[in-house]
Amino acid sequence: MNKNFIVKDHSVSQEEFTLIHNKELDYYITTPVPKNLDLYYESDSYISHTDSTQSLQDKLYQSVKKINLRNKITLINQYTTNSKSVLDVGAGTGDFLKQAQLNGWTIAGVEPNPKARDLAEKKNINLSSSLEEITEPLYDVITLWHVLEHLPNLETQISKLHNLLKPNGTLIIAIPNFKSYDAKYYKEFWAAYDVPRHLYHFSRKAIDRIFSKHKFELIRTKPMLFDAFYVSLLSEKYKTGKPNYIRAFMVATISNIQGFFNKEPSSIIYVLKKT
């Protein structure tokens, strides 16, 4: 799918947005961008800004989040110096930073949503409201777990991230992959488009090309296997009006198997080195 198409905001406004394909870099841009984008995050269903365990879907999300937290700590431990400092951009309710702190990391984080910051503060995690507030020190590792696609002024933000990293520092990004099997299966109902909150929709090629311009070298990628199941479950609900667990499981399983062979899983972690 390399042409413009329309996607609906299924979770909040029910409005339609157009995804415009950038052929040179191979990514999509959401248009138009609402003037007050913050309003599109004001939803109880936006689970990364809550610690909700009310529904079965919430419980599944929180259970998987615990597993992912352990995996994230294992990953960042591979890219550290003795100082072990990490900046998490889009820190949500602070769970990743809390685990990093418990594992000996000096932590800092950014989260624009005030409700999420309040929940993080209750865990003794104090977050800045914007990346512009972070001026020092320099960090060994900077992480963006499903955050890059939300950032306005993308090129400016990437330059800022580069400046905040120590020499040879590591940038770790997790984002959805619109070239995955589940994205192609669900098409405009694919939950990971999540317009207009997701301003950009990246391919592997796009990440390599965009970040190389900003003096980053892509050194490694990893699939996020659980994402295919969660995204497929949401996509089923958007497409059919109900969460078809069996079909979502089948689609996610196929997506993960295909992703193993063609390197196009539902979500990808990119590890980039500052050069």
Rank of each mutant, 00 (worst) to 15 (best):
Y185R: 09
H162C: 04
F178R: 10
E121P: 00
S159N: 15
Y139P: 04
N153P: 10
W145G: 08
L127G: 04
I142Y: 09
K122E: 10
K115G: 00
N177V: 06
K123A: 04
S129A: 13
T135C: 03
P137K: 03
Q157V: 13
T170L: 02
E136T: 11
K123I: 03
N113T: 03
L127K: 05
I175P: 00
L151V: 09
K115R: 05
N126H: 14
L148I: 15
Q157P: 05
T170P: 04
W145E: 09
D182E: 09
I134G: 01
S128W: 04
D118S: 12
I173K: 05
E188D: 14
Y185C: 06
Y181M: 02
E136L: 08
E188R: 12
S129T: 10
Y186Q: 04
E155Q: 14
K184A: 09
L127R: 03
L161G: 07
A120Q: 01
T135D: 12
K184P: 00
Q157E: 15
A116P: 01
I134K: 02
H146P: 11
E188A: 11
K187C: 03
L161I: 10
K160H: 11
G169N: 07
L164P: 06
E155G: 06
Q157T: 15
T170N: 05
F178K: 09
Y186V: 02
P152N: 10
P167E: 11
T143A: 06
K123M: 04
P137A: 03
Y181S: 02
D118Y: 10
T135L: 10
N126I: 15
L154W: 08
I134A: 00
K115V: 08
Y139I: 00
H162K: 15
L131V: 02
P137S: 06
K166T: 11
D140V: 02
S130Y: 08
A116F: 01
K160S: 13
N126S: 13
T170I: 11
L138Q: 14
A116E: 01
K122G: 01
T135R: 07
N168A: 12
H150S: 12
I134Y: 00
Y185L: 06
L144H: 11
P114T: 00
K187W: 05
Y139F: 15
T156F: 07
P114Q: 00
S159Q: 15
L131E: 04
I134T: 03
I172D: 07
D182A: 06
